[in-house]
Design a protein around this nucleic acid. Structure first.
Lengths: 330, 330
DNA sequence: TTGAAAGCGCTAACAG
DNA sequence: CTGTTAGCGCTTTCAA
């Protein structure tokens, strides 16, 4: 049977024969106390199986050690990577991460932000710069340290850590153009919800247009990105049979779908068709032909955000850049 | 400039010209109040931009709406999947997930469990059944609902949701044997820390031994699992050149490494070498030859655990099983 | 239907 | 070095 641990600070104080504040000082190793007192308190705490109540501690002392993190998805490795960087740095500083997953739904994001704010977190991280007006208002008025991650294309509220998605799109287009590809199609996932993917393709088309070109075809699967969606998207494009020499995918997962479809159908990469992705996932590096893609510093973004969240940093924008990986598919 | 939202319940009460408890009742929609009072309170709250303080609310009312989740890793999609299932179900019931990542370090896990317990969570989820003695003691004495996930091979503290890893290993061995493979090697990652992987290979060898066979070779990479580690592991085995007809990998990431190594080296799968993994990741399904593996109900495990955590369920063990996916590589 | 008052368990002055 | 005393912002009796 589970016996609730009801021991409180007062219980420990009584057991040790000292005052509550003394116990508090000893347990937090803050302020002064004699060695002898310290031992008695620690012994009593251990004996009673005392577990401090952070809820009470936080209420009494103002600042909480919680950091809220609202991310859009856990369906691929991208945000887990960000979370990994953040949680590691946070834990090292004695903070705890409270997470919520919005599934790329702005209304849910808004509700989650409100919900997180109710815990009076030391800082709140959100993905991207686009939020509902109400969410923006909540964030701006909260007085909490706000960190917007993974995007730098647009105004930020407090601190932004990431890179320019628009520039990722531009660089990707420049690469394909430099390799001589001219008849390029786009295969993407739901852009209405993934605003960063929308910025990438916008930057991509900008460069194409500047070169007097345009996308030959474009297929947007109305679901979240996935390997299957990439496969289905390329299948539809191929069915429409435009003359094509390259496909730009909204991310690596989508591109993998395309890659293996080509492999299965005997379409040679990049001879018959070049493939370009985004994210720089590990698996792309070990493919028979390494995927041409853009690597983003996801773990580092999380870690940097965590550091900034716990320091008393001024509002700022941190550009961690990205790396175009030439690979062998485009 | 960020202006702290300092409005408290008392402020709202004063602004609305009612008592604090009345505001509390209206805001939580609990207890009785007149329609007119309700309107005045809501108006005042909106006007002041009032955000309730859950820290205070929780302290005053006992039960928190936090659920702690301590997972070993975020480096591959496995635990993000569990987290996804859990967070979705939790959010639906108005709970918040607090997460911590132990990096497969038992001592860190213990510290994290203690740390989570300090938030007096409504429930605490941990991965697996193996913990330090101190951690087990903390969990058992906490009086908190404890959920141990992803493993059923061993005694559980309160509720366990998962499947038998040992049985996964057995089923995998039976499958390879049934397909006629006899000279089998194992390529795994650090077993000292991944106890569930250790249980799988134990079950695997058990069946092999019962058939009068033994592993022909075994390579254990002393790091976390990864595609690169799988590749490196298989490389070493091949360098030792034992006569081999199949390789059992500790998981799909490792197996992908092996798969692409074979592809690059022109080793035909499964003719020259059969490959078997574990996890049933999406990418394995779209490979030219779908990966032979075992699919586990990760999202469902998270969701089931969340449901059990928020209901007032009795202590129990829930076996959600697994599915052997024959695939085309073994 | 409403308000007053007593805490929840802890921290933070402030005396001693 | 140590104890006393107020709260932190909210929920919850208990009366009115």
């Amino acid at each position: 049977m589970l016996r609730p641990s009801t021991a409180t600070l007062a219980d420990v104080a009584a057991a040790a024969g000292v005052g509550e504040s003394t116990v508090s000082r000893v347990l937090r190793n803050h302020g002064s106390f004699s060695q002898k007192t310290r031992e008695r308190v620690l012994a009593a705490a251990t004996r009673l199986g005392y577990v401090p109540n952070r809820i009470a501690g936080t209420l009494a002392s103002a600042g909480s050690r919680l950091v809220g993190i609202v991310i859009p998805s856990l369906a691929n490795i991208v945000f887990p990577d960000v979370l990994r960087g953040a949680s590691q740095a946070l834990e090292a500083e004695g903070y705890q991460a409270v997470i919520a997953v919005s599934e790329y739904d702005m209304a849910r994001e808004e509700a989650m932000i409100a919900s997180m704010l109710a815990w009076r977190p030391a800082a709140l991280m959100v993905a991207g710069l686009e939020h509902t007006p109400a969410a923006r208002a909540l964030l701006a008025a909260s007085g909490t340290r706000i960190l917007e991650l993974m995007d730098l294309d647009g105004p930020s509220i407090d601190i932004a850590v990431g890179f320019s998605n628009r520039e990722v799109g531009r660089a990707s287009a420049r690469h394909l153009l430099a390799r001589g590809y001219r008849r390029i199609a786009y295969v993407g996932h739901d852009l209405a919800v993934d605003t960063r993917a929308a910025k990438r393709i916008a930057g991509f088309e900008e460069v194409l247009h500047a070169a007097g070109l345009a996308l030959v075809d474009r297929e947007t699967i109305p679901t979240a990105s996935s390997i299957e969606a990439g496969q289905a998207g390329l299948e539809r494009v191929l069915a429409r049979a435009p003359r094509l020499d390259a496909v730009y995918f909204s991310n690596d997962d989508m591109a993998f779908g395309g890659y293996f479809l080509c492999m299965t159908r005997g379409i040679s990469i990049p001879g018959d068709l070049a493939i370009f992705g985004y994210n720089g996932l590990a698996i792309g590096r070990v493919l028979p032909q390494p995927l041409s893609t853009v690597r983003t510093p996801r773990v580092e973004i999380g870690a940097t955000a965590a550091r900034l969240a716990t320091e008393n940093a001024p509002a700022q924008r941190v550009d961690l850049g990205f790396e175009l990986v030439p690979g062998g598919t485009a």
